[in-house]
């Protein structure tokens, strides 16, 4: 079996006195779509944010697409070395936020162009044509490109945010509750984009409350609670025959 595209070993993270992650390990193969579910405060968002070092883990080892960072003994200020490794790692990871976090002072086309131009030094024309292609891919072709984020619906904004992340050509896409801030009727258009990406073979990790999506689209589901991964299951199995009592308890509310 090939080396997994993403592997996490024994990840720990605490804020002040509260331990959020207490030894999380996970391996994700290329092309997988993994849903991470669990009750609020279980550490699933922190786990996701640690994957691209928006939070610096206290301990553990993260390896993504050939970049490995060992976080042993980083309780104090992280050394410059870690920051530059993290910077390298982020280039391979795209991230989509619950609140979209589009840049409001730029059109959505400019939103997709900024990072390639600033970080990679891509020429403006090239960045623009790539941005247009990606916006088209998420269903925002044509006149949409020149809209400002505030002039669009939440679903459109989140799709634009996905296009923006894709512009950096990531190996893995991370989604932090991508549909939680959306009106119910706008959820599907975003989920459809993620399904399309899955069909193209993109590796994706989604922290979500959309059980239906988790069940329909995931290759497998990770259930977290209390800073641990409690159960990793096939998407049907976890809903029909949860192995762990805590999973059963959590899912009861949704079924």
């Amino acid at each position: 079996m090939a080396e997994p595209l993403l592997s996490v070993q024994n990840l720990h993270k605490r804020f002040e006195e509260t331990a959020i992650l207490k030894g999380v390990s996970l391996a994700v193969e290329e092309g997988d779509l993994v849903s991470v579910i669990g009750p609020s405060g279980c550490g699933k968002s922190t786990f996701l944010r640690c994957l691209n070092f928006l939070e610096i883990p206290d301990a553990g080892r993260i390896s993504i697409a050939g970049v490995t960072i060992d976080c042993q003994g980083l309780e104090d200020a992280p050394p410059k070395d870690i920051q530059s490794r993290a910077h390298e790692l982020r280039q391979r990871v795209g991230m989509v936020f619950q609140q979209f976090n589009l840049f409001p002072h730029r059109t959505i086309l400019e939103n997709t162009m900024m990072a390639p131009m600033v970080v990679r030094g891509v020429a403006r024309e090239e960045a623009a044509s790539m941005g247009k292609r990606l916006l088209e891919k998420v269903g925002l072709g044509g006149a949409f490109a020149d809209r400002y984020p505030a002039q669009m619906s939440g679903g459109q904004q989140q799709r634009a945010a996905i296009a923006r992340a894709l512009a950096m050509n990531p190996k893995v896409m991370l989604y932090d509750e991508p549909t939680s801030a959306l009106d119910p009727e706008l959820v599907d258009e975003v989920l459809k984009v993620m399904k399309d990406l899955d069909a193209e073979g993109m590796t994706q990790i989604v922290v979500t409350h959309e059980m239906r999506f988790a069940r329909d689209a995931s290759d497998y589901i990770v259930f977290m609670e209390g800073g641990h991964i409690v159960e990793i299951s096939d998407e049907d199995e976890i809903f029909t025959h949860p192995k762990d009592e805590r999973t059963r308890q959590f899912l009861r509310r949704f079924l």
């Binding site: 691209n52 928006l54 910077h87 982020r90 280039q91 990871v93 795209g94 991230m95 936020f97 609140q99 976090n101 589009l102 840049f103 409001p104 002072h105 900024m114 990072a115 600033v118 970080v119 923006r164 992340a165 950096m168």
Partner: peptide, 27 residues
């Protein structure tokens, strides 16, 4: 400027300085 703006910039691979210059300052 909301915290999420700098996070988005950094998640896109920008350094703090680039994020400050291209994202935070214009806003």
């Amino acid at each position: 400027v909301p915290r999420g703006q700098m996070e988005a910039a950094r998640a896109l691979g920008m350094t703090r300085r680039q994020g400050l210059f291209h994202v935070i300052m214009p806003q």
